[in-house]
Design a protein around this nucleic acid. Sequence first.
DNA 1: TGTACATCAGTGAACGCGCGTTCACTGATGTAC
DNA 2: TGTACATCAGTGAACGCGCGTTCACTGATGTAC
Lengths: 199, 199
Amino acid sequence: LPYTPEHRTQTRRRIVRSAQRLFNQHGFQGVSIDQIMAEAKLTRGGFYRHFSSKSDLYAEAMDCFFTNPECGNRWEGVEVDPAKGAVGAQIVRAYLSRQHFQDIQDSCPMVALPSDVARSNDSVKRAYETALGAMIEHLQADTDKTGHPTRAEALAIAAMCIGGMVVARASEDVAVADEVREAAKAAAMVMGGWTEFDA
Amino acid sequence: LPYTPEHRTQTRRRIVRSAQRLFNQHGFQGVSIDQIMAEAKLTRGGFYRHFSSKSDLYAEAMDCFFTNPECGNRWEGVEVDPAKGAVGAQIVRAYLSRQHFQDIQDSCPMVALPSDVARSNDSVKRAYETALGAMIEHLQADTDKTGHPTRAEALAIAAMCIGGMVVARASEDVAVADEVREAAKAAAMVMGGWTEFDA
DNA sequence: TGTACATCAGTGAACGCGCGTTCACTGATGTAC
DNA sequence: TGTACATCAGTGAACGCGCGTTCACTGATGTAC
């Protein structure tokens, strides 16, 4: 073998990470393979040694975000501290935070690419669904005795988090965006039964 | 004048309607001017007699959906009957209905194009914000004494409606999509204080 | 009423450009001797 | 230890195609006489 298998894996990972950032910012159709490869410090031609097509990479970039920790499992980014209350409450706060609003590059793709995914093929939609499943699971998990949303409640909380952020990002006025985020956050907290932990 | 002013207006409207349907289905970047003009029974070249650019049409298509009744004010499509309860409750039901889920062409663009809008210029975002404002207003309006959500509550209900639909459309499994819609609908009804009107 | 005209909505060929994908190649690397 | 080799990750030119936009034109229409 000319190169170590690790070399190949790392290059592939670098392409996926580059794609995640660029897709988040400009959407599937707004990003070229040239751009993705350039951000990964590579050139056009090498792409097809790692992926069979642009759509193929799209599905992997979406899937990778939550399920493959090697590509950076983003939920781990939310440091969960049992002392700070329920896991779900912390996720809601982080999800609807100003930081997540601003950080589009490393944003959750569920919020950065929903209408793109709706138009994509089944493997991309399946990846979206998996990501949603992971979020639901985290929302239902709990480190103490308070706030155990049912599956239906968790789905509604997820819809509120994603919807609130999606609407905030599509608004022109930052004041309106903030208003939407705060309203969604407050409502999600009530729905999860997490109101006893600060406002 | 060679043609009546109405002729010009009607052609322009036909282009906008065609654009609304196609943008809803394939997004801004997924639709060509050729396609838009063909669906409007016209040819490529005539486009620039009505619009200065594709982006220009995009902003108008978005704006037109709610504010310009000539282009088909979609909220009027939800026949509001005071006998059936609060206006807001009827809007929530219609918004999260299976019909709205399936009818992508004539869908609300807030749900069909949110991530596209987030990447667009300010005039498109302003149109989105206007549409949101119209929805909030309708949600707060009430034909009888029950269910008067505050502005914050109305914003949260709108986020829930949009988020629920966006997530449903991005899911691969229709059963999951239905589950999300129903969960979002139930939660929005509780938030609006409309639970006394059927489940 | 009929005709010549000016207007401009709509046509379709053409433009330059960037894209996804292919392909012949180069050269860095681990292995065999 | 040193060298020849086979492998294949990565390169960059090339391809065909579709796009947004431009432009010289055509021809349907309302108006003036």
